[in-house]
Computed example of a mutant assay.
Amino acid sequence: GYGFARSAFGPWGGFLTGTAILIEYAIAPAAIAVFIGAYCQSLFGIGGWMIYLAFYIVFIAIHIFGVGEALKLMFIITAVAAIALGVFLVAMVPHFSVANLLDIPVTEAAGASSFLPFGYVGVWTAIPYAIWFFLAVEGVPLAAEETKNPKRDLPRGLIGAMLVLLSFALLILVIGPGGAGANALLTSGNPLVEALAKAYGGSTWMGSFVNLVGLAGLIASFFSIIYAYSRQIFALSRAGYLPRKLSETNKSKAPVLALVIPGIIGFGLSLTGQGDLLILVAVFGATISYVLMMAAHITLRIRRPKMDRPYRTPGGIFTSGVALVLACIAVVAGFLVDPRVVIGAAIIYGVLIAYFAFYSRHHLVAGTPEEEFAAIQKAEEALH
């Protein structure tokens, strides 16, 4: 993402996009750790900081000692988690009722009704949590350097992932509350299990299965986003946007500091236990990066229409234009939910921008893929 924006807007565009993505990836595991704690509490009666710490230590250690085989294992776990979602949906369908979707008490908000209990603004404030369904799927291209045929495989992987997520998101969002009641799941930390318990009047083997495999799915997400943030920091550091120390690797070619430092920060944030607020911070970073990447796409299409494009976006500028508008709406939505949290994230973003303005933009590294691409671009413009 940052290399894409670097091509369109130069080093400033690259840095603003890269650090926005970094905020997203560094904070998302903290939110997931909170949810893992809720699932472990439900399954084993143990949750809280001990679970958060154990997961951070174990999975950062796996990344430090070699991530290749673990990625294959995570793929299998993700596939099993998808089966569990299928079991959940089949189990909830017999209990589905449209009335259950509309059982949240109507508030005093403008435009409030049984269909929109929190009014028009409620739709807007739900957007950050809707984005959470899809958060970090755009991290697929971070595997470009470890993919045999990125021109073919990355579009397939990314589009396939989005279609699977879209299908599950729609089905879970409708069938789950439709079977158990939307109000019953309003503040749930493990809504799939609680939905089954509500629908079937207590604990069942399905509930235990979905709980266990749901936990496995969260672990797979936790694992893969740790991978994503380490590779994002590695790329930014290698190019000189962040301190060079962060891109130093061990014998297994793992960037140790890029794994450990965000892990310590994430663990500290997970101690708040506020998974919903951590989602807001992660989504703030994500939506800022979406705005910048959509703008980069439009800019490159206009300024460099003949640039080699192994993959062309269907609909071109119209598609990215619509996405740009939606991303801007999503940025504002976070402020409506809890402005203090999003302002805090914006301050962190501002500190990173100041670091780039006063130091790192004067120390960018020549010879990295992004800088080489920029040099080629400059040479081509000079020829024209």
Rank of each mutant, 00 (worst) to 15 (best):
G3A: 04
F9L: 04
P11Y: 06
G13S: 09
I23C: 02
Y25H: 10
Y25I: 03
A26W: 05
A28F: 13
A30R: 01
A31F: 01
V34Y: 02
I36G: 01
I36A: 03
Q41F: 12
S42A: 15
G48Y: 04
Y56V: 11
I57L: 10
G68W: 14
T78P: 00
V80H: 00
A84P: 02
A84R: 00
V87A: 08
F88H: 10
V90H: 04
N100R: 09
D103A: 10
I104C: 05
P105A: 08
E108L: 14
A112R: 08
I127A: 01
F133W: 14
V137I: 14
L142A: 08
E145Y: 11
T147L: 05
L154T: 09
G176D: 00
P177D: 09
G179R: 01
V193T: 15
E194T: 15
Y200E: 10
G201P: 02
G202T: 13
V210A: 06
N211T: 15
L215C: 05
S221G: 15
S221K: 02
Y229G: 02
S230I: 10
I233T: 15
S237M: 07
A239L: 06
G240N: 07
L242N: 03
K251C: 05
A254S: 15
P262N: 09
I264L: 11
I264P: 00
S270K: 03
I279P: 00
L280C: 05
F284W: 12
T287M: 12
S289V: 12
L300A: 07
G316Y: 05
F318V: 15
V322K: 02
L324W: 12
V325I: 15
D338S: 14
V341P: 01
A346D: 06
I347S: 02
A354P: 00
R361S: 09
H362D: 10
L364V: 14
V365H: 08
G367C: 13
F373D: 12
A375C: 11
A375P: 07
